[in-house]
């Protein structure tokens, strides 16, 4: 059984953390991953920075711009992660936009991920139809899970389609928004969380966008398996040293 499936089978709500590789400093990547695992985080999304992250808000756009300015590249990320599986056991997922991966070469990208022990990819701007027609076989060959997003506007029919093609979890965008732009959840989100839970999908869902503290984490995991924190963690890193990550994680649970 692979690491993502193992994590999803645990009898608890999962806390997943996103950070941008190369931020705040170029070589912080491995230190941040180790610190997050040490403090009980269940899964990590490593952000591959892109100059034009369409689905992200100002916080992640800013951390991406800084990371690129620091000299972060796709090759460097793979170099940094080379020995990560000697010490880190939790699932690691790379989240990035399609263009940098395309330029690196999709096959080579998948191959590197497999060598390192990356478990899955989240590529917001790689559409379902293109993935299915051109990349699914490749991902499977390298044992990589492709994780799809759904939003409150996604039709039930399309959710079923995404559930069928997925084999790990579904990334459930909490509300119609880019990352980092919400201020707490309202009745309509709870209705959406429940609606999706009631669909009894084969893949568990992990909620992202708008989770920033204990309250929103508990709210987001009322019906779902886990939640992802991104922008709030980036903001924490912008003001606090990496050794204080334990404080951030403890403030969530």
């Amino acid at each position: 059984m692979n690491r993502i499936h193992q994590a999803l089978q645990q009898d608890k709500k999962l806390l997943s953390i996103y950070f941008t590789a190369g931020y705040p400093h170029l070589n912080d990547t491995v230190t941040i991953i180790k610190e997050l695992e040490k403090n009980g985080v269940d899964m990590i999304e490593i952000g591959l920075p892109f100059s034009d992250p369409l689905a992200d808000g100002p916080t992640i756009q800013e951390s991406s711009t800084i990371a690129i300015g620091n000299g972060m590249t796709t090759q460097l990320l793979f170099d940094q992660l080379k020995d990560i599986r000697k010490s880190v056991q939790i699932p690691l997922v790379i989240m990035g936009y399609f263009n940098p991966m395309m330029q690196f070469g999709m096959e080579k990208f998948c191959q590197k991920c497999a060598e390192i022990g990356i478990d899955g990819l989240i590529i917001p701007d790689l559409p379902l139809a293109i993935y299915e027609a051109e990349y699914k076989a490749l991902f499977e060959r390298y044992g990589l899970h492709n994780i799809f997003l759904i939003t409150p506007q996604t039709s039930d029919e399309r959710i079923q389609q995404i559930d069928t093609i997925s084999d790990s979890f579904i990334y459930m965008v909490s509300s119609a928004a880019v990352t980092g732009s919400q201020s707490g959840f309202a009745t309509e989100q709870f209705a959406y969380f429940k609606r999706i839970a009631d669909l009894k999908l084969k893949n568990p869902q992990i909620v992202g966008f708008g989770i920033k503290d204990q309250v929103t984490f508990i709210q987001a995991t009322t019906y779902q398996k886990g939640a992802i924190i991104g922008s709030a963690f980036i903001q924490f890193l912008s003001k606090n040293p990496i050794k204080n990550i334990s404080k951030f994680v403890k403030s969530i649970r």
Partner: peptide, 11 residues
């Protein structure tokens, strides 16, 4: 061409 868009824009 094509439509390489995040799911949020799909509908």
């Amino acid at each position: 061409g094509g439509a390489f868009i995040p799911e949020m824009l799909y509908p």
